[in-house]
C-alpha cells in the first residue's frame, strides 16, 4: 500500500506541511514523541492546575478565529501564492494561514474521540450479550452488522483506492464480492431503513398536530386559525374559488379593502409580518446566547459543568 498517497495531497511545503521524504519521517517521529511526552506530562500535573492547562489550550485554539474575525482580511488574496503589500496584510496573511492547521488539529482530536465513541458502543453491547441481559438479541444484531459493515466497507474502499488504477470498479459489471456486499448493505439496506425512519415523521406530525390544534385556550385557537389559513392557502381549487368570491365582493361593494381577505394575501401576511419577525427575534436571542457562551468558554470564565 502506498502510504505517501495521503501526504502527496499536501503540495506546498511550509512550517506546518512537510513533503514526503526522509525529513518528513523525522518530523512525524518528533511529533509523535512530543505528543506522548505531553500526554505523560499532563497526567502528572496536579488536578488543581489541569483546569488552567485546559483554559490555556482553549484560549490558544480560539485565538486565531477571533483574530481572523477582527483583523482585516486581505481582500481577494491568495494566501498561498500572493505577497502581502504591507504590514497589515502581512498580519492578516499570518492569522488566516494559522486557521487551517488549527482546524486540522481539531480533526485529529475528533478522529481519536470517534474511537472512544465506538469503544463505548461496542463495550455496552458486548456486555449485554455476555450477560444475556434483556433484549440481548438486538445487541447481537448490532455487533454483527457493525463488524460486517466495517469489514466490507473497508475492503471495498481499499480495492477501489489502491487496486483499481483504471477505474474499472466504477462499472457494476466489474464488481467483485466486496463491491456487491457493500452495495447491498449500504444502498440496499441502510439507506432504505434510513428513509423508512425519515418517512415515519409524517405520522408523528399528524398525531402531534392533532393534540396541538385541540382548542383549549386563546393561544391554541389563534394557532388553529393561523394554521387553517396557511393550509387552505395550499389548496389551489379552494384558493381560486375563495379569491373569485372576494373579487366579486369588491366589485359589488366598490371597496378594495376586502382584497386583504384573499387566502394568499392573508397567508403571506401571516408569514412575512408575524412568523418571520418572531423567528428572527428568537434567533437574535439564540445568537447572543451562543456568543456569551463562547466568550465564557474561550476566556475560561465558566466554572462547573464542562468547564470543571
Amino acid at each position: 500500500m502506498n502510504n505517501t498517497i495521503f501526504l502527496l495531497a499536501q503540495n506546498t511545503e511550509n512550517f506546518w506541511r512537510k513533503l514526503p521524504g526522509q525529513g518528513l519521517v523525522i518530523w512525524v517521529v518528533i511529533g509523535l514523541l512530543l505528543g506522548i511526552a505531553l500526554l505523560f506530562a499532563f497526567t502528572q500535573v496536579p488536578s488543581n492546575l489541569r483546569r488552567w492547562i485546559i483554559v490555556g489550550f482553549t484560549f490558544l485554539a480560539g485565538l486565531p478565529y477571533v483574530l481572523a474575525y477582527l483583523w482585516p482580511k486581505p481582500i481577494g488574496a491568495d494566501l498561498q501564492n500572493d505577497v502581502p503589500r504591507n504590514l497589515s496584510e502581512q498580519i492578516g496573511f499570518t492569522i488566516n494561514q494559522a486557521i487551517d492547521p488549527v482546524g486540522k488539529i481539531t480533526n485529529v482530536l475528533q478522529a481519536f474521540l470517534l474511537g472512544v465513541g465506538i469503544f463505548s458502543l461496542v463495550r455496552v453491547h458486548i456486555t449485554k450479550v455476555r450477560r444475556k441481559s434483556e433484549n440481548w438479541g438486538f445487541s447481537t444484531v448490532l455487533l454483527v452488522c457493525f463488524a460486517l459493515m466495517t469489514t466490507v466497507g473497508f475492503m471495498d474502499w481499499r480495492q477501489r483506492k489502491f487496486m483499481d488504477d483504471n477505474g474499472l470498479l466504477n462499472e457494476p459489471s466489474n464488481w467483485g464480492f466486496f463491491q456487491y456486499a457493500n452495495d447491498l448493505m449500504f444502498e440496499g439496506m441502510y439507506q432504505q431503513m434510513d428513509s423508512a425512519m425519515f418517512s415515519m415523521i409524517a405520522f408523528f406530525i399528524l398525531s402531534a398536530a392533532y393534540r396541538a390544534f385541540r382548542i383549549r385556550s386563546v393561544e391554541a385557537t389563534v394557532m388553529m386559525a393561523s394554521a387553517l389559513i396557511l393550509m387552505l392557502n395550499l389548496m389551489g381549487a379552494l384558493t381560486y374559488a375563495w379569491g373569485t368570491g372576494i373579487e366579486s365582493l369588491v366589485v359589488q361593494t366598490g371597496n378594495p379593502f376586502f382584497m386583504n381577505f384573499k387566502l394568499n394575501v392573508m397567508a403571506d401576511w401571516l408569514r412575512s409580518t408575524m412568523q418571520i419577525p418572531a423567528i428572527r427575534a428568537i434567533d437574535f436571542g439564540v445568537f447572543l446566547g451562543a456568543l456569551a457562551m463562547g466568550l465564557r468558554l474561550w476566556l475560561g470564565l465558566e466554572k462547573g459543568g464542562v468547564s470543571s
Binding site: E13, N14, K18, L19, P20, G21, G23, W27
Partner: peptide, 8 residues
C-alpha cells in the same frame, strides 16, 4: 522539493 527536506 527534494527528498530529505524538512523545514523552511
Amino acid at each position: 522539493a527534494e527528498t530529505g527536506g524538512g523545514g523552511e
